[in-house]
Amino acid sequence: MTGRPADDEPILRIDNLHKRFGQTEVLRGVSFDVHAGEVLCVIGPSGSGKSTLLRCINFLEEPTAGTIYVDGEMMGHRVEGGRLVGLRATELAMQRVHIGMVFQSFNLFGHLTALQNVIEAPIMVKKEPRAEVEKLATALLDRVGLAHKAHCYPAQLSGGQQQRVAIARALAMRPKLMLFDEPTSALDPEIVGEVLQVIQALAIDGTTMIVVTHEMGFAREVSHRVIFMDEGVIVESGPPNDVLVNPSHVRTRQFLARITAPVTRAGAEGTT
């Protein structure tokens, strides 16, 4: 899983990102790049700002300071006469089209079937013709192994199946970048594997993605780079074998020691 070009324009560039909620500063200057085809895993203790980081990238949370570029385009702002001007809601919505997001709690639309969940945004937001979208959606549901559940409502699906539909729904927008916010944390241990397999397959196919996860086995197997965050800053960043196996920082070592069992686990499938 190497051979990604390193010197080209990054898909995502984050520069000195800050986010403050009232008195608490959740992100305190985060900067990194993600290149096309790269798989980046973000790990760290809860409350370290991982989820906020993802939510700032697609402006579900507006950053307090710092800039984010997606495929060279600045998120949420535009330079006008040498000054930064906030984008209008409709413009910001169009920028979000390029970023797919998968949530910890799936958040499928409860009143729509699996297929309707997948085709909703391409038809309503991108105004693509229904027949084409349905073809793409059926193919995507097949890819996540749920073609036979296309006409089921979310309540009729297991957690793992719901999350796979949510992945198909995000992919249907053909995003340049996928964000996974703890995609398996709400799942029973025995079905974590089926979701991780789908994400791994996407990674192998060259999907650019950032995955916030507690699955250390998955991070080691699938990612090109791992970022360890604590208290709103990046403590350590590098290839998974460095960060996860021979971490250079004390805080990383302490964190990994606390969740040692998952690290020594063999693969991403979660076969325990």
Binding site: L60, R96, F103, L108, F109, A121, V125
Partner: peptide
């Protein structure tokens, strides 16, 4: 509220 959030992340405006 997470339903609105998921819709927003897919590029829907608040109104849509």
């Amino acid at each position: 509220a997470r339903q609105t959030e998921a819709a927003t992340a897919l590029g829907m405006t608040k109104r849509l």
